[in-house]
């Protein structure tokens, strides 16, 4: 146990070492870093602009006001942004395998998962995070709700579980590339695409869609179920209210699945060499 704990500690240190190194590299081209960060701020902000334009024509969307949708959008985008910052480049696994540079990672004394997560760590992703956090913060001030202690406590809970869910989805999407090296687009559909689905109240989707987003790809637990609690909305599926607090369970299950698939993937790589 002690040794596995120290292994975890070492891997976190190694991650920080690698990430810091990539930050230094990006800082040597400061102008380009600033441009990219600001660019990401505005490009990811366009999604929000789209929502704002829509609300200049309608007052509510499936019973949700502008500030409520902004709250959903901000939550989803913030969680995605944080996960993307931590391990966004893991999706390059397939490319690395094809180029043969994955082998280089395998001969270093650091877990390949950690090395893939930290690979070309891009601080410019703070652009997306700042934008999402800004919208999220504004929506919190704009919402006309009574901020009880339990509602306030739900906020960090939402961000934490949502981020973990996206981390697991990123990892799963990358791990699939151990089998099909060309599938990074498929992974993007679940991460970036999934986050876009969660920008909106799930009530706009068919019931089967909501069920899929709850039980198959549990993106609903990122912001939807916590928001039902915070915004005091009825559950369209009529599930017991406990589901609004089941996020950590969904996140844990998905993480375990991701870890298993990743592990099997590396084993497969070691046994097929491709």
């Amino acid at each position: 146990m002690a040794s596995s704990l120290s292994a975890v500690g070492w891997n976190i240190r190694a991650y920080l070492l690698l990430a810091r190194m990539w930050i230094r590299v990006s800082m040597t081209y400061r102008a380009s870093f600033v441009t990219l960060t600001v660019g990401q701020f505005f490009i990811t902000g366009l999604d929000y602009v789209g929502i704002a334009i829509m609300f200049s024509n309608v007052d509510t969307l499936a019973g949700f006001s502008f500030s409520e949708v902004a709250f959903l959008y901000g939550g989803s985008a913030l969680c995605l942004g944080l996960a993307d910052l931590v391990l966004g480049n893991i999706e390059r696994l397939g490319t690395r395998i094809r180029m043969g540079t994955f082998d280089v990672m395998l001969v270093r004394p650091v877990s390949v998962f950690v090395q893939m997560c930290a690979d070309e760590f891009a601080l410019r992703r703070l652009g997306r995070i700042t934008q999402a956090a800004g919208v999220f913060a504004w929506s919190i001030t704009a919402l006309d709700i009574d901020w009880t202690a339990s509602r306030v406590a739900m906020l960090p809970y939402l961000v934490a579980t949502g981020t973990v869910i996206f981390l697991a989805i990123f990892t799963l999407g990358a791990a699939v590339q151990f089998w099909t090296a060309e599938s990074s687009e498929l992974a993007n559909a679940f991460t970036y695409g999934g986050s876009t689905l969660a920008h909106f109240p799930l009530t706009i989707y068919p019931r089967e869609g909501i069920k899929a987003l709850t039980f198959v790809i549990p993106l609903g637990f990122v912001n939807w179920y916590p928001s039902l609690f915070i915004l005091d909305k009825p559950d369209p599926l009529g599930l017991p209210p406990a589901i609004q607090f089941a996020g950590p369970i969904a996140a844990a299950l998905l993480s375990v699945l991701a870890a298993i698939v990743w592990r099997r993937g590396t084993r497969r790589y070691q046994s097929t060499g491709s």
């Binding site: 190194m21 590299v25 180029m99 043969g100 540079t101 082998d103 280089v104 395998l106 001969v107 270093r108 004394p109 650091v110 877990s111």
Partner: peptide, 23 residues
């Protein structure tokens, strides 16, 4: 014991670098 072994071996792949391209 790949990661433990990594500390005891050195590898040079002639065709590709183990160094960081941008550093």
């Amino acid at each position: 014991e790949r990661t433990e072994l990594a500390r005891k071996i050195g590898v040079v792949f002639g065709q590709r670098t183990t160094l960081w391209w941008d550093l």
